[in-house]
Design a protein around this nucleic acid. Structure first.
Length: 512
DNA sequence: CATGCCGGGGC
DNA sequence: GCCCCGGCATG
Protein backbone atom coordinates (compact mmCIF):
# COMPACT_ATOMS: atom_id res chain seq x y z
CA UNK A 1 0.00 0.00 0.00
CA UNK A 2 2.62 2.42 0.88
CA UNK A 3 4.57 2.04 -2.21
CA UNK A 4 2.06 3.36 -4.50
CA UNK A 5 0.90 5.86 -2.10
CA UNK A 6 4.30 7.35 -2.34
CA UNK A 7 3.66 8.55 -5.72
CA UNK A 8 1.08 10.70 -4.22
CA UNK A 9 -0.48 13.08 -6.41
CA UNK A 10 1.25 13.45 -9.59
CA UNK A 11 3.66 16.14 -9.96
CA UNK A 12 4.08 15.33 -13.51
CA UNK A 13 4.34 18.39 -15.49
CA UNK A 14 5.42 20.37 -12.57
CA UNK A 15 8.20 22.72 -12.96
CA UNK A 16 10.97 22.08 -10.60
CA UNK A 17 14.34 23.31 -9.88
CA UNK A 18 17.19 21.01 -10.29
CA UNK A 19 20.82 21.27 -9.66
CA UNK A 20 22.60 22.68 -12.50
CA UNK A 21 24.25 20.07 -14.56
CA UNK A 22 27.21 22.27 -14.90
CA UNK A 23 27.64 22.37 -11.25
CA UNK A 24 27.88 26.08 -11.07
CA UNK A 25 25.24 26.16 -8.51
CA UNK A 26 22.73 27.99 -10.55
CA UNK A 27 19.64 25.92 -10.49
CA UNK A 28 17.91 25.16 -13.64
CA UNK A 29 14.33 24.38 -14.19
CA UNK A 30 12.72 21.49 -15.79
CA UNK A 31 9.48 19.73 -16.05
CA UNK A 32 8.84 16.54 -14.29
CA UNK A 33 8.12 13.86 -16.75
CA UNK A 34 7.97 10.84 -14.59
CA UNK A 35 8.38 9.68 -11.11
CA UNK A 36 9.82 6.48 -9.91
CA UNK A 37 10.06 4.92 -6.59
CA UNK A 38 13.41 3.85 -5.53
CA UNK A 39 13.91 0.84 -3.38
CA UNK A 40 10.30 0.08 -3.20
CA UNK A 41 10.90 -3.03 -1.25
CA UNK A 42 12.42 -1.43 1.71
CA UNK A 43 9.82 1.16 1.72
CA UNK A 44 8.28 0.23 4.94
CA UNK A 45 10.15 2.26 7.40
CA UNK A 46 11.07 5.26 5.43
CA UNK A 47 14.04 6.19 3.38
CA UNK A 48 12.05 5.64 0.32
CA UNK A 49 12.82 8.07 -2.30
CA UNK A 50 11.38 9.21 -5.44
CA UNK A 51 13.32 9.70 -8.53
CA UNK A 52 12.02 12.27 -10.84
CA UNK A 53 12.67 12.26 -14.46
CA UNK A 54 12.89 15.82 -15.45
CA UNK A 55 12.80 17.32 -18.82
CA UNK A 56 15.36 19.98 -18.77
CA UNK A 57 15.33 23.24 -20.55
CA UNK A 58 17.56 21.99 -23.18
CA UNK A 59 15.27 19.17 -23.91
CA UNK A 60 17.28 16.52 -22.24
CA UNK A 61 15.94 14.13 -19.71
CA UNK A 62 17.60 13.79 -16.40
CA UNK A 63 16.79 12.01 -13.26
CA UNK A 64 16.92 13.58 -9.90
CA UNK A 65 16.21 12.40 -6.50
CA UNK A 66 13.77 14.11 -4.34
CA UNK A 67 16.44 15.77 -2.37
CA UNK A 68 18.17 17.09 -5.35
CA UNK A 69 15.13 18.70 -6.59
CA UNK A 70 14.16 19.92 -3.29
CA UNK A 71 17.49 21.53 -2.99
CA UNK A 72 16.85 23.42 -6.09
CA UNK A 73 13.67 24.88 -4.89
CA UNK A 74 11.34 24.28 -2.08
CA UNK A 75 10.34 20.97 -3.34
CA UNK A 76 8.71 19.75 -6.37
CA UNK A 77 5.29 19.60 -5.05
CA UNK A 78 4.99 23.19 -4.39
CA UNK A 79 6.76 24.49 -7.28
CA UNK A 80 4.30 24.30 -9.97
CA UNK A 81 1.05 25.78 -9.13
CA UNK A 82 0.71 28.10 -6.34
CA UNK A 83 3.23 30.30 -4.82
CA UNK A 84 6.20 28.48 -3.78
CA UNK A 85 9.53 29.50 -2.89
CA UNK A 86 10.97 31.36 -0.09
CA UNK A 87 11.91 34.53 -1.71
CA UNK A 88 8.39 35.47 -2.28
CA UNK A 89 8.79 35.84 -5.94
CA UNK A 90 5.98 34.34 -7.78
CA UNK A 91 6.50 31.28 -9.75
CA UNK A 92 5.74 32.79 -12.98
CA UNK A 93 8.33 35.37 -12.45
CA UNK A 94 10.96 32.92 -11.81
CA UNK A 95 9.97 31.14 -14.86
CA UNK A 96 10.28 34.20 -16.87
CA UNK A 97 13.77 34.42 -15.82
CA UNK A 98 14.64 30.85 -15.65
CA UNK A 99 12.91 28.80 -18.11
CA UNK A 100 10.53 30.06 -20.51
CA UNK A 101 11.28 26.83 -21.90
CA UNK A 102 9.27 25.53 -24.59
CA UNK A 103 6.24 23.61 -25.28
CA UNK A 104 6.80 21.04 -22.67
CA UNK A 105 5.62 23.26 -19.98
CA UNK A 106 2.60 24.56 -21.66
CA UNK A 107 1.72 21.24 -23.00
CA UNK A 108 1.78 19.57 -19.73
CA UNK A 109 -0.15 21.82 -17.62
CA UNK A 110 -3.46 21.92 -19.29
CA UNK A 111 -3.64 18.24 -19.28
CA UNK A 112 -2.88 18.17 -15.71
CA UNK A 113 -5.48 20.67 -14.95
CA UNK A 114 -8.01 18.30 -16.26
CA UNK A 115 -7.48 15.94 -13.49
CA UNK A 116 -8.37 18.36 -10.87
CA UNK A 117 -11.86 18.91 -11.95
CA UNK A 118 -12.78 15.35 -12.11
CA UNK A 119 -16.33 14.52 -12.22
CA UNK A 120 -17.77 11.80 -10.13
CA UNK A 121 -19.94 10.79 -12.97
CA UNK A 122 -17.00 9.65 -14.84
CA UNK A 123 -16.48 6.91 -12.43
CA UNK A 124 -18.19 4.66 -14.78
CA UNK A 125 -15.92 5.43 -17.60
CA UNK A 126 -12.99 3.71 -16.27
CA UNK A 127 -10.62 3.82 -19.13
CA UNK A 128 -10.81 7.47 -19.51
CA UNK A 129 -10.93 7.81 -15.89
CA UNK A 130 -7.73 6.18 -15.12
CA UNK A 131 -5.89 8.81 -16.94
CA UNK A 132 -7.37 11.37 -14.74
CA UNK A 133 -7.18 9.50 -11.59
CA UNK A 134 -3.65 10.55 -11.18
CA UNK A 135 -4.83 12.30 -8.19
CA UNK A 136 -5.72 9.48 -6.02
CA UNK A 137 -8.31 10.11 -3.50
CA UNK A 138 -6.54 7.87 -1.13
CA UNK A 139 -3.52 9.99 -0.86
CA UNK A 140 -2.74 11.46 2.39
CA UNK A 141 -0.55 14.18 1.22
CA UNK A 142 -0.93 17.79 2.03
CA UNK A 143 -3.31 19.20 -0.41
CA UNK A 144 -1.05 20.98 -2.73
CA UNK A 145 -3.32 21.14 -5.66
CA UNK A 146 -6.79 20.63 -4.59
CA UNK A 147 -8.22 22.90 -2.10
CA UNK A 148 -10.19 21.52 0.72
CA UNK A 149 -13.36 22.66 -0.83
CA UNK A 150 -12.63 20.81 -3.93
CA UNK A 151 -12.12 17.68 -2.06
CA UNK A 152 -15.22 18.14 -0.11
CA UNK A 153 -17.31 18.80 -3.06
CA UNK A 154 -15.90 15.85 -4.77
CA UNK A 155 -16.72 13.58 -1.96
CA UNK A 156 -20.11 14.92 -1.48
CA UNK A 157 -21.10 14.71 -5.04
CA UNK A 158 -19.55 11.35 -5.38
CA UNK A 159 -21.42 10.15 -2.40
CA UNK A 160 -24.60 11.49 -3.77
CA UNK A 161 -24.09 9.86 -7.06
CA UNK A 162 -23.19 6.64 -5.45
CA UNK A 163 -26.14 6.73 -3.24
CA UNK A 164 -28.57 7.48 -5.92
CA UNK A 165 -27.12 4.94 -8.20
CA UNK A 166 -27.05 2.18 -5.80
CA UNK A 167 -30.39 2.83 -4.37
CA UNK A 168 -32.11 2.30 -7.58
CA UNK A 169 -31.97 -1.27 -8.68
CA UNK A 170 -32.18 -0.28 -12.24
CA UNK A 171 -29.08 1.75 -12.32
CA UNK A 172 -26.98 -0.04 -9.96
CA UNK A 173 -24.21 -1.15 -12.12
CA UNK A 174 -22.44 2.04 -13.08
CA UNK A 175 -20.58 2.69 -9.89
CA UNK A 176 -19.18 -0.71 -9.96
CA UNK A 177 -17.81 -0.46 -13.34
CA UNK A 178 -15.08 1.59 -11.96
CA UNK A 179 -13.55 -1.33 -10.34
CA UNK A 180 -14.26 -3.48 -13.21
CA UNK A 181 -12.52 -1.29 -15.64
CA UNK A 182 -9.66 -0.47 -13.42
CA UNK A 183 -9.01 -3.92 -12.37
CA UNK A 184 -8.59 -4.89 -15.91
CA UNK A 185 -6.47 -2.54 -17.83
CA UNK A 186 -5.24 -0.44 -15.07
CA UNK A 187 -3.76 -3.32 -13.35
CA UNK A 188 -0.84 -3.54 -15.62
CA UNK A 189 0.33 -0.10 -14.98
CA UNK A 190 -0.24 -0.41 -11.38
CA UNK A 191 1.62 -3.56 -10.79
CA UNK A 192 4.25 -3.12 -13.37
CA UNK A 193 5.65 -0.64 -11.05
CA UNK A 194 6.26 3.02 -11.20
CA UNK A 195 4.93 5.24 -13.73
CA UNK A 196 6.30 4.95 -17.09
CA UNK A 197 7.82 8.04 -18.54
CA UNK A 198 4.99 8.29 -20.91
CA UNK A 199 4.39 11.92 -20.40
CA UNK A 200 1.33 12.98 -18.62
CA UNK A 201 -0.68 9.92 -19.10
CA UNK A 202 0.75 8.49 -16.01
CA UNK A 203 -1.80 6.03 -15.05
CA UNK A 204 -2.37 6.37 -11.45
CA UNK A 205 -3.62 3.72 -9.17
CA UNK A 206 -6.82 5.01 -7.98
CA UNK A 207 -6.88 2.41 -5.35
CA UNK A 208 -3.56 1.95 -3.96
CA UNK A 209 -3.20 -1.65 -4.64
CA UNK A 210 -3.13 -3.38 -7.87
CA UNK A 211 -5.19 -6.38 -8.45
CA UNK A 212 -2.99 -9.39 -8.28
CA UNK A 213 -5.83 -11.62 -9.01
CA UNK A 214 -6.48 -12.74 -12.46
CA UNK A 215 -10.08 -13.18 -11.75
CA UNK A 216 -10.87 -10.01 -13.39
CA UNK A 217 -10.75 -10.53 -17.01
CA UNK A 218 -9.45 -7.43 -18.55
CA UNK A 219 -12.06 -7.07 -21.15
CA UNK A 220 -15.23 -7.87 -19.51
CA UNK A 221 -17.70 -6.85 -22.10
CA UNK A 222 -20.57 -5.67 -20.08
CA UNK A 223 -21.49 -7.52 -17.01
CA UNK A 224 -24.84 -6.28 -16.05
CA UNK A 225 -24.62 -7.40 -12.54
CA UNK A 226 -22.55 -5.69 -10.05
CA UNK A 227 -22.07 -8.36 -7.54
CA UNK A 228 -19.66 -10.26 -9.61
CA UNK A 229 -17.57 -7.40 -10.54
CA UNK A 230 -17.43 -6.44 -6.99
CA UNK A 231 -16.07 -9.66 -5.91
CA UNK A 232 -12.76 -9.87 -7.63
CA UNK A 233 -12.01 -6.49 -6.40
CA UNK A 234 -12.59 -7.14 -2.87
CA UNK A 235 -10.36 -10.09 -2.74
CA UNK A 236 -7.17 -8.25 -3.39
CA UNK A 237 -8.00 -5.96 -0.60
CA UNK A 238 -7.11 -8.65 1.78
CA UNK A 239 -3.63 -9.32 0.73
CA UNK A 240 -2.86 -6.11 -0.89
CA UNK A 241 -3.94 -3.54 1.51
CA UNK A 242 -2.90 -4.98 4.71
CA UNK A 243 -4.83 -2.34 6.43
CA UNK A 244 -7.20 -4.81 7.77
CA UNK A 245 -6.75 -4.75 11.46
CA UNK A 246 -8.09 -8.13 12.10
CA UNK A 247 -6.45 -9.66 9.15
CA UNK A 248 -9.22 -12.12 9.05
CA UNK A 249 -11.31 -10.87 6.32
CA UNK A 250 -11.29 -14.06 4.41
CA UNK A 251 -14.14 -15.87 5.98
CA UNK A 252 -16.48 -13.11 5.41
CA UNK A 253 -15.27 -12.73 1.95
CA UNK A 254 -15.77 -16.30 1.24
CA UNK A 255 -19.20 -16.15 2.47
CA UNK A 256 -19.66 -13.10 0.51
CA UNK A 257 -18.57 -14.87 -2.55
CA UNK A 258 -20.96 -17.58 -1.90
CA UNK A 259 -23.80 -15.31 -1.33
CA UNK A 260 -23.01 -13.02 -4.13
CA UNK A 261 -23.92 -15.72 -6.48
CA UNK A 262 -27.31 -15.47 -5.13
CA UNK A 263 -27.60 -11.90 -5.97
CA UNK A 264 -28.29 -12.47 -9.53
CA UNK A 265 -31.82 -13.51 -9.76
CA UNK A 266 -31.83 -17.08 -8.76
CA UNK A 267 -35.42 -17.22 -9.62
CA UNK A 268 -36.50 -17.55 -13.14
CA UNK A 269 -39.58 -15.64 -12.50
CA UNK A 270 -38.69 -12.35 -11.22
CA UNK A 271 -41.11 -10.00 -9.79
CA UNK A 272 -41.06 -6.41 -10.51
CA UNK A 273 -40.05 -3.79 -8.12
CA UNK A 274 -39.92 -6.20 -5.33
CA UNK A 275 -36.34 -5.66 -4.42
CA UNK A 276 -35.08 -3.27 -1.90
CA UNK A 277 -31.42 -2.62 -1.79
CA UNK A 278 -29.62 -2.63 1.45
CA UNK A 279 -25.99 -2.44 2.30
CA UNK A 280 -24.32 -4.86 4.54
CA UNK A 281 -21.09 -4.44 6.36
CA UNK A 282 -18.69 -7.18 5.59
CA UNK A 283 -16.49 -6.60 8.50
CA UNK A 284 -15.93 -9.66 10.47
CA UNK A 285 -18.60 -10.31 13.00
CA UNK A 286 -20.35 -7.19 12.11
CA UNK A 287 -22.79 -7.67 9.35
CA UNK A 288 -24.59 -4.49 9.99
CA UNK A 289 -27.10 -3.62 7.40
CA UNK A 290 -28.01 -0.16 6.46
CA UNK A 291 -30.18 1.18 3.82
CA UNK A 292 -27.92 3.76 2.34
CA UNK A 293 -24.43 3.80 1.06
CA UNK A 294 -23.74 6.86 3.02
CA UNK A 295 -24.84 5.16 6.12
CA UNK A 296 -22.84 2.07 5.64
CA UNK A 297 -19.82 3.99 4.61
CA UNK A 298 -20.06 6.07 7.65
CA UNK A 299 -20.49 3.02 9.76
CA UNK A 300 -17.44 1.36 8.37
CA UNK A 301 -15.41 4.45 8.48
CA UNK A 302 -16.11 5.21 12.02
CA UNK A 303 -16.54 1.82 13.52
CA UNK A 304 -14.09 -0.29 11.65
CA UNK A 305 -11.62 1.98 10.03
CA UNK A 306 -11.47 4.07 13.07
CA UNK A 307 -11.66 7.31 11.32
CA UNK A 308 -13.30 9.90 13.29
CA UNK A 309 -13.69 12.44 10.71
CA UNK A 310 -16.83 12.60 8.77
CA UNK A 311 -17.39 11.66 5.26
CA UNK A 312 -14.96 14.22 4.07
CA UNK A 313 -11.84 12.36 4.79
CA UNK A 314 -13.02 9.21 3.27
CA UNK A 315 -10.66 7.70 0.84
CA UNK A 316 -13.13 5.29 -0.50
CA UNK A 317 -11.78 2.38 1.34
CA UNK A 318 -15.11 1.75 2.96
CA UNK A 319 -16.46 0.69 -0.35
CA UNK A 320 -14.71 -2.56 -0.01
CA UNK A 321 -16.08 -3.46 3.29
CA UNK A 322 -19.69 -3.47 2.51
CA UNK A 323 -21.76 -5.06 -0.05
CA UNK A 324 -25.09 -4.61 -1.50
CA UNK A 325 -27.89 -6.94 -0.80
CA UNK A 326 -31.31 -7.10 -2.14
CA UNK A 327 -34.28 -7.76 -0.07
CA UNK A 328 -37.38 -9.18 -1.38
CA UNK A 329 -39.73 -6.67 0.02
CA UNK A 330 -42.43 -8.04 -2.07
CA UNK A 331 -42.64 -11.28 -0.29
CA UNK A 332 -42.68 -9.34 2.87
CA UNK A 333 -45.66 -7.46 1.72
CA UNK A 334 -47.30 -10.63 0.66
CA UNK A 335 -46.75 -12.18 3.94
CA UNK A 336 -48.09 -9.29 5.83
CA UNK A 337 -51.04 -8.87 3.65
CA UNK A 338 -51.77 -12.49 3.96
CA UNK A 339 -52.82 -11.81 7.44
CA UNK A 340 -55.99 -10.54 6.08
CA UNK A 341 -58.12 -13.13 4.41
CA UNK A 342 -56.97 -13.66 0.94
CA UNK A 343 -59.99 -15.43 -0.16
CA UNK A 344 -63.51 -15.16 0.92
CA UNK A 345 -63.17 -18.08 3.17
CA UNK A 346 -64.51 -17.34 6.55
CA UNK A 347 -62.32 -19.81 8.19
CA UNK A 348 -59.34 -19.31 10.32
CA UNK A 349 -59.18 -15.80 11.46
CA UNK A 350 -55.62 -14.81 11.08
CA UNK A 351 -53.76 -13.71 14.12
CA UNK A 352 -54.86 -10.24 13.56
CA UNK A 353 -53.14 -7.30 15.02
CA UNK A 354 -55.94 -5.02 14.01
CA UNK A 355 -58.52 -6.84 16.06
CA UNK A 356 -57.55 -6.87 19.68
CA UNK A 357 -60.88 -8.22 20.67
CA UNK A 358 -60.06 -11.62 19.48
CA UNK A 359 -60.69 -14.30 22.00
CA UNK A 360 -57.26 -15.69 21.51
CA UNK A 361 -55.93 -12.66 23.10
CA UNK A 362 -52.65 -13.84 24.38
CA UNK A 363 -51.66 -15.27 21.13
CA UNK A 364 -51.65 -12.10 19.14
CA UNK A 365 -49.42 -10.65 21.71
CA UNK A 366 -46.59 -12.82 20.86
CA UNK A 367 -47.37 -12.53 17.28
CA UNK A 368 -47.83 -8.93 17.23
CA UNK A 369 -44.44 -7.56 16.68
CA UNK A 370 -45.97 -4.19 16.12
CA UNK A 371 -42.98 -3.71 13.98
CA UNK A 372 -41.15 -6.27 12.04
CA UNK A 373 -38.15 -5.88 14.17
CA UNK A 374 -39.33 -8.45 16.52
CA UNK A 375 -37.13 -11.34 15.99
CA UNK A 376 -38.10 -14.86 15.50
CA UNK A 377 -41.49 -16.13 15.04
CA UNK A 378 -43.06 -18.22 17.66
CA UNK A 379 -43.93 -20.70 15.00
CA UNK A 380 -46.28 -23.48 15.31
CA UNK A 381 -47.86 -22.97 18.55
CA UNK A 382 -44.80 -21.95 20.34
CA UNK A 383 -46.00 -19.64 23.00
CA UNK A 384 -42.83 -17.83 23.23
CA UNK A 385 -42.64 -14.77 25.28
CA UNK A 386 -42.30 -11.66 23.34
CA UNK A 387 -39.23 -10.78 25.20
CA UNK A 388 -36.84 -11.08 22.39
CA UNK A 389 -35.85 -7.85 21.00
CA UNK A 390 -33.93 -7.76 17.87
CA UNK A 391 -32.38 -4.50 17.17
CA UNK A 392 -30.57 -5.47 14.11
CA UNK A 393 -31.99 -4.89 10.75
CA UNK A 394 -31.19 -8.43 9.97
CA UNK A 395 -33.83 -9.55 12.23
CA UNK A 396 -36.11 -7.25 10.58
CA UNK A 397 -35.44 -8.88 7.34
CA UNK A 398 -35.70 -12.26 8.69
CA UNK A 399 -38.88 -11.88 10.53
CA UNK A 400 -40.34 -10.32 7.53
CA UNK A 401 -39.91 -13.49 5.74
CA UNK A 402 -41.32 -15.35 8.59
CA UNK A 403 -44.46 -13.50 8.01
CA UNK A 404 -44.82 -15.03 4.71
CA UNK A 405 -46.44 -17.80 6.48
CA UNK A 406 -50.11 -17.66 6.17
CA UNK A 407 -52.79 -19.17 8.16
CA UNK A 408 -53.73 -22.37 6.52
CA UNK A 409 -57.32 -22.49 5.81
CA UNK A 410 -57.96 -26.13 5.77
CA UNK A 411 -60.36 -26.45 8.57
CA UNK A 412 -63.21 -28.74 8.69
CA UNK A 413 -65.74 -27.06 10.82
CA UNK A 414 -65.27 -29.64 13.46
CA UNK A 415 -62.52 -29.85 15.92
CA UNK A 416 -59.58 -31.58 14.40
CA UNK A 417 -56.69 -29.28 14.70
CA UNK A 418 -54.75 -29.83 11.67
CA UNK A 419 -51.46 -28.59 12.79
CA UNK A 420 -49.30 -28.95 15.74
CA UNK A 421 -49.81 -27.39 19.04
CA UNK A 422 -53.01 -25.64 19.47
CA UNK A 423 -52.85 -22.46 21.32
CA UNK A 424 -56.34 -21.32 20.93
CA UNK A 425 -58.96 -21.71 23.51
CA UNK A 426 -61.48 -22.56 20.94
CA UNK A 427 -61.30 -25.71 18.99
CA UNK A 428 -62.93 -24.57 15.87
CA UNK A 429 -59.85 -23.53 14.09
CA UNK A 430 -56.19 -23.51 14.26
CA UNK A 431 -53.56 -21.26 13.12
CA UNK A 432 -50.28 -22.71 12.39
CA UNK A 433 -47.28 -20.62 11.83
CA UNK A 434 -44.72 -22.04 9.66
CA UNK A 435 -41.10 -21.50 9.76
CA UNK A 436 -39.82 -19.04 7.29
CA UNK A 437 -39.33 -20.35 3.85
CA UNK A 438 -35.69 -19.68 4.08
CA UNK A 439 -33.67 -22.75 4.33
CA UNK A 440 -30.14 -22.23 3.43
CA UNK A 441 -27.82 -22.53 6.29
CA UNK A 442 -29.78 -25.16 7.93
CA UNK A 443 -29.11 -24.49 11.50
CA UNK A 444 -29.99 -20.92 11.91
CA UNK A 445 -33.10 -20.82 9.95
CA UNK A 446 -34.79 -23.56 11.72
CA UNK A 447 -37.56 -22.50 14.00
CA UNK A 448 -35.38 -22.69 16.95
CA UNK A 449 -35.83 -19.96 19.34
CA UNK A 450 -32.27 -19.51 20.24
CA UNK A 451 -31.15 -16.72 18.13
CA UNK A 452 -27.67 -15.58 18.55
CA UNK A 453 -26.22 -12.48 17.22
CA UNK A 454 -23.25 -14.20 15.87
CA UNK A 455 -25.40 -15.83 13.36
CA UNK A 456 -26.45 -12.71 11.77
CA UNK A 457 -24.37 -13.23 8.79
CA UNK A 458 -25.75 -16.51 7.85
CA UNK A 459 -29.08 -15.12 8.55
CA UNK A 460 -28.53 -12.57 5.97
CA UNK A 461 -27.36 -15.02 3.50
CA UNK A 462 -30.28 -17.18 3.99
CA UNK A 463 -32.46 -14.24 3.56
CA UNK A 464 -30.82 -13.42 0.37
CA UNK A 465 -31.17 -16.86 -0.89
CA UNK A 466 -34.68 -17.27 0.12
CA UNK A 467 -36.71 -18.05 -2.86
CA UNK A 468 -39.82 -16.03 -3.06
CA UNK A 469 -41.80 -19.08 -3.75
CA UNK A 470 -42.26 -19.72 -0.19
CA UNK A 471 -43.37 -22.80 1.45
CA UNK A 472 -45.95 -23.44 -1.06
CA UNK A 473 -48.19 -25.41 1.15
CA UNK A 474 -48.98 -22.24 2.90
CA UNK A 475 -48.74 -19.49 0.47
CA UNK A 476 -50.76 -21.35 -2.03
CA UNK A 477 -54.41 -21.44 -1.54
CA UNK A 478 -55.54 -24.82 -0.73
CA UNK A 479 -57.42 -26.42 -3.42
CA UNK A 480 -61.07 -25.95 -3.11
CA UNK A 481 -63.16 -28.92 -2.51
CA UNK A 482 -66.32 -27.89 -4.16
CA UNK A 483 -67.08 -27.91 -7.79
CA UNK A 484 -65.69 -25.23 -9.88
CA UNK A 485 -66.77 -23.68 -13.05
CA UNK A 486 -64.60 -25.98 -14.94
CA UNK A 487 -66.27 -29.00 -13.56
CA UNK A 488 -69.70 -27.60 -13.63
CA UNK A 489 -69.71 -26.26 -17.10
CA UNK A 490 -66.99 -28.23 -18.60
CA UNK A 491 -64.40 -27.13 -20.99
CA UNK A 492 -66.86 -26.75 -23.80
CA UNK A 493 -68.79 -24.10 -21.94
CA UNK A 494 -65.87 -22.22 -20.94
CA UNK A 495 -67.53 -18.95 -21.63
CA UNK A 496 -69.89 -19.70 -18.83
CA UNK A 497 -67.13 -19.88 -16.35
CA UNK A 498 -66.52 -17.14 -14.01
CA UNK A 499 -63.81 -14.89 -15.14
CA UNK A 500 -61.50 -16.09 -12.47
CA UNK A 501 -61.82 -19.60 -13.67
CA UNK A 502 -61.31 -18.52 -17.18
CA UNK A 503 -58.18 -16.83 -16.14
CA UNK A 504 -57.10 -19.77 -14.17
CA UNK A 505 -57.53 -17.88 -11.02
CA UNK A 506 -59.28 -18.89 -7.91
CA UNK A 507 -62.84 -19.49 -8.73
CA UNK A 508 -65.10 -16.74 -7.62
CA UNK A 509 -68.36 -18.38 -8.27
CA UNK A 510 -67.99 -21.52 -6.32
CA UNK A 511 -66.00 -20.60 -3.42
CA UNK A 512 -65.40 -23.12 -0.81
C1' DC B 1 -53.54 -37.14 -15.53
C1' DA B 2 -57.11 -33.61 -14.30
C1' DT B 3 -57.86 -29.85 -11.67
C1' DG B 4 -57.27 -25.52 -9.06
C1' DC B 5 -54.78 -21.69 -8.76
C1' DC B 6 -50.57 -18.54 -8.42
C1' DG B 7 -47.39 -15.72 -10.67
C1' DG B 8 -46.43 -13.43 -14.49
C1' DG B 9 -46.67 -11.52 -19.17
C1' DG B 10 -48.89 -9.30 -23.21
C1' DC B 11 -52.00 -5.97 -24.72
C1' DG C 1 -57.37 -3.89 -16.09
C1' DC C 2 -58.42 -7.75 -19.10
C1' DC C 3 -56.94 -11.90 -20.69
C1' DC C 4 -54.05 -15.79 -21.18
C1' DC C 5 -50.61 -19.11 -19.98
C1' DG C 6 -46.69 -21.68 -17.61
C1' DG C 7 -46.12 -24.21 -14.02
C1' DC C 8 -46.87 -26.17 -9.58
C1' DA C 9 -49.46 -28.72 -6.04
C1' DT C 10 -52.87 -31.72 -5.15
C1' DG C 11 -56.08 -35.48 -5.63
Amino acid sequence: MHTRRLVKRSILGSRVYAPSPTGDGAPVTGVVQAVKQENRDASAAGARRSVYTVLMQDGSLKEFTEEEIAAGSKGPLKSSLKHSSSNGVSDSHKLEGGCRSPEAVDEQRPSEGKRVGRDPDTRSVSLLEQKRKVVSSSIDVPHARRSEEEVDMDKVTAAMVLTSLSTSPLVRSPPVKVSEGLSGSWKENGSAGPFTPSSNSSSGGYWSWSAPSDQSNPSTPSPPLSADSFKPFRVPSVGGVGSNPTGAEDPSLDEQDGSSLLFDEPIPRKRKNSMKVMFKCLWKNCGKVLSTTAGIQRHIRTIHLGRNCDSDCSDGEEDFYYTEIKLNTDSVADGLSSLSPVSSSVLSPPPPPPSPLQPLSHQPESHRPSHPSDSKEPHAGGNTPLSRSAPSALYLIHSDHAYQATAPVSIPSSSSNSSSTSFTPTNSFSISWQSPPVTFTGNTVSPTENQVFGEQRSQTISVLSSPPRATTALSRKVRGEGKKCRKVYGMENRDMWCTACRWKKACQRFTD
